[in-house]
Design a binder for these strands. Structure first.
Lengths: 244, 244
DNA sequence: CGTCGTCTTGACCAAAGTCAACGCACGTGG
DNA sequence: CCACGTGCGTTGACTTTGGTCAAGACGACG
């Protein structure tokens, strides 16, 4: 369990190191790991809530459903991410949070978080900063979905996922578990599933990446970045990359 | 000048009223109104900065330029908006901020803002909240650009603009100044200028809105909202609308 | 009165969507 | 152990939406 809080700490510390006091506050967070199956909603549009959700394991996405049944995924989330920090200060959820795989989560009471921000302003600022990085990702997605070709768009998405997974140690030499379907990639890239399929084949023939079954095989990182016009600056990792 | 700070105060107070102490802090903010012409950059991608920019008058947008010269506008901003609050906690800008009209701006030093958050945690939270609303707008734009038809997309954008302008008192009975070109609407909706033109004509023939020259004429608010699938909840105005 | 920027139009084109059928792999139950 | 069903990936034919190109109109402003 302590190892799971480490992920959050590591993420917050990408900005600046925590004092031992601040660190202790985080380490003292009570963890009530709760397992949830795949394809369940952890939060729904229109709901208000009294706690945030820390993702301990598994994969999750934010999405909205339109009137005509279309779905738009707005972000993916990995272990160590606090999923709905926006609920702390905004009234109702404007989107859903759904599990892509079986996950473990633990709630963090809003009261706890507000208390942190009050008593440890620097910690509060790191949380704020975390939401700003999220916002930067949304901006990048606007560009991605709005202005890039199907191929570039898909490549860019995969670059983002790989970079973020590698930052939490979830890649192993040019390979990572990526248990998502092409329908989900379609909903994230605003393409049709059929077209995603063709694009994926294209990326494969070009020897850039291969997504087979539930694992992603990176063949040519530089090439993939170029195909997607990917510049990781918006993720704010300060240039530190665990990738080759 | 004091009137201009009022806009910011009014915006922050949409969440909860400020104490007289907090109010005073804001009112004491020194204003150095600086005029800037249209089509200038107030901030550039890659830059770091030591202050944020408060928009006093005029219109501004955030945008990114892609390798192939395409532009994507990611948001519009109106008087009372703090333009680059993200620069307070994130290193380098990941996008540009450009003026659409002649504007007046005043800088607010990062030091001042950080001091506020330290000494008036509630005020800090309101600023944080403001950035969360921005993030909600970016999410909405992902949906808009990703999943809506050209017509719905344009209608939705106009709905957002109208709602936000009206919230700062910049609409006058079904009319508002909207000094933007169709090229700018194209860059915001990820359409081509030619197609925006056709869509605008369509909206006009359907008697929903008319954008002639630099003023926007609302003919059928309910119809426009429906055409755009617009639900203002994400703007967090708590249902308070100045619209008929 | 002319010029520049913006809007408008029409003809044509391309990217991606839709529909429908088929295959393949895995898991379940007889 | 095989038969079947279900969910996902794959393919091809055809359609649609919106993009591109190029020319011309319109309107504000010097």
């Amino acid at each position: 369990m302590a190892a799971m809080i480490e992920l959050l700490i590591r993420k917050l510390e990408q900005f600046g190191t925590l004092s031992s006091e601040e660190r202790r506050v985080l380490e003292d967070l009570p963890i009530n790991a709760r397992p949830v199956e795949a394809d369940q909603d952890l939060a729904r549009e229109g709901q208000a809530s009294s706690h945030c959700i820390l993702l301990l394991s598994g994969m999750v996405c934010r999405y909205r459903l339109l009137q005509n049944g279309q779905r738009q995924i707005m972000s993916f989330h990995f272990p160590g991410d606090i999923l709905d920090l926006t609920s702390l200060l905004l009234g109702k959820m404007d989107h859903n949070i759904g599990t892509l795989t079986p996950v473990e989560v633990t709630p963090i009471a809003h009261a706890t978080l507000l208390d942190w921000t009050e008593r440890h302003p620097r910690l509060g600022r790191l949380l704020w900063r975390d939401t700003l990085v999220d916002a930067a990702m949304f901006r990048e997605w606007v560009v991605n979905v709005g202005r890039r070709s199907a191929l570039a768009r898909t490549a860019h998405l995969l670059c983002e996922i790989i970079t973020r997974l590698s930052s939490v140690g979830l890649t192993h030499d040019h390979t990572c578990d990526l248990p998502i379907t092409s329908a989900e990639i379609a909903d994230a890239t605003s393409l049709s599933m059929v077209h995603v399929n063709r694009v994926l084949q294209d990326l494969r023939t070009k020897n850039l990446v291969e997504l087979r079954g539930k694992t992603l095989l990176m063949l040519d990182w530089a090439g993939l970045q170029q195909a997607g016009g990917f510049d990781p600056a918006y993720l704010q990792y300060g240039g530190v990359s665990a990738l080759a």
